[in-house]
Nucleic acid binder design. Sequence first.
DNA 1: TTGAAAGCGCTAACAG
DNA 2: CTGTTAGCGCTTTCAA
Lengths: 327, 327
Amino acid sequence: MARRDRVGITDVAAKAGVSVTTVSHVLSSRRPVSEATRAKVMAVIEELDYRPNELARSMRARRTNTVGLVVPDITNPFYTSAARGLQDALAPAGYHCIVTSTDSDHQVEHEVIRQMLTRVDGVVISGGSRTADIQPVIDAGMPMVLLGTDEPGAGFDVVTNADFDAGVTAARYLVDRSYRRIGFITAQDADSVAQARLDGYRSVTESDPELVVEETNNLEGGTRGFARLMQLSEPPDAIICVNDVVAIGVMYGAQDARRAVPDEVAVVGFDDIEAASLVAPRLTTMATASREHGKAAGELLLRRIQDESREPQRVVFPAKLIERDSA
Amino acid sequence: MARRDRVGITDVAAKAGVSVTTVSHVLSSRRPVSEATRAKVMAVIEELDYRPNELARSMRARRTNTVGLVVPDITNPFYTSAARGLQDALAPAGYHCIVTSTDSDHQVEHEVIRQMLTRVDGVVISGGSRTADIQPVIDAGMPMVLLGTDEPGAGFDVVTNADFDAGVTAARYLVDRSYRRIGFITAQDADSVAQARLDGYRSVTESDPELVVEETNNLEGGTRGFARLMQLSEPPDAIICVNDVVAIGVMYGAQDARRAVPDEVAVVGFDDIEAASLVAPRLTTMATASREHGKAAGELLLRRIQDESREPQRVVFPAKLIERDSA
DNA sequence: TTGAAAGCGCTAACAG
DNA sequence: CTGTTAGCGCTTTCAA
């Protein structure tokens, strides 16, 4: 089955006995067309099943109605939700979205971004890209919003998560519920997100440095971290973990050690992954509004595309405490 | 910051003192260019940081190097992985991917697909779209591959999951391990995937109809289903669940009823969601090779774009048994 | 080995 | 109210 030759505006014009200009205008309503003509043209459009070629339109208008989304890995739930939120914002405006995963490879990222530049009206970039990687975007004067980064390099639209505050909220929640010694399990080579969460926690507890342990960023890390914390002369009665997987690991450690959660140790995680509500006891956690992040990024980007001289804006979403059974 | 006017091929030609034709040819190597000229042109390209406008290229070549992916919801892990696999296949070929979630709204789907038609070289459609919705794609002679559908409507490239076989494998695994009475919890208003899994199970057990119960497709459904199954005069010693969430629900039911998993009741799920390896005991499940699905779809699509008269092909992936602790 | 010029399908001045 | 025409930035005959 060969691709059928698309019917063009010329075909419509010919068949309707009018000029292409007129056809163009019945489509765009950018200038009056007599009712008779309009009807005739519409009939022909219908009959020929004509659809304007968006490519040609884009070329003329220098507007592609498409934006690019660059993420480390679309498979990461945070980015998945964000992508969905982005589409939520884009769809009503008739915008499409090209998604690319870079696996955090700067080379790939750089290349991908350059490739996109001529095909999109703007880009959403996430995953703490280095300034060097986004330089081409800046040079091209391409509308851009940074997602989930803490890049201080102001001058751009940014939407990000209040990770420090999330750390504060988690710690305070525990304090308010009379937990006295609160431990924290963080990840080895913590990224800025993990660091901010830890800093937030530190800001509310008079932290005994012993209470903060570094572990691998997985289930086993959590279990090990729990064991280490419990060996302290004064073990904690509550543990905050840098993310839910680690937190679940902690709960298994507790289970193995016959420590009741939350009665003997409370556990709080971050992210609200699906498993958080599926484990027993269900995990109390700080949820990131990832879909909202994406949506906000989309709205910001759309506004910037419309008005490139707008003042750069910074949107920060608070994490939301999801009270469940583990604390 | 106004969008800087992109430097075009004309600018390069002018600055290099050659014709645009020549510039075009040093880029495409579609005809010989003297080494001196080529060097000069390359130098100017470098200096001006010139990048050809892909839009204009696409328009001439009638090839956009972009494909569309239409899914019900990119947030569903199956589609997320598939999207990633699709990109895996596409990236080496220099193809990009426009992703759209339709929420299974036929209206949206129809509209989205029509919109895409002039912007992409092919589409991957998933989520059991009705024939009516994909009619525009067919009419346009647009290369297409159906993902995860069982649409018998042959004539298209299809990549799908061997759900029936997965049901068989799960049941047989249990039989081989000497479980005698195997129950199955399916979902109310089961879709074709659920139905195929159930059918596969039925084909290996001499099924006592009592052993198959319908429940809501969630954690509670699993727990309830477990309770119902245990009330049987001859309760099962193993339970297969239509998906992992239901299976986890079953495990909680078992826990509440003080039935040891897998010693008293074995549990097997489908999908291998993240939580499957995070719950205790870890859930044995039939994993769908979703990323491979997407990759295969991409390869099929690229081949069809190259050769539209190729014989339609059907790629079926077997589910993979992930042995863990629950069975 | 190189150029001039004709479009790809559409929109928007600029005329009637 | 409608039509003619000049491009958008590129590739590709056709001609030298």
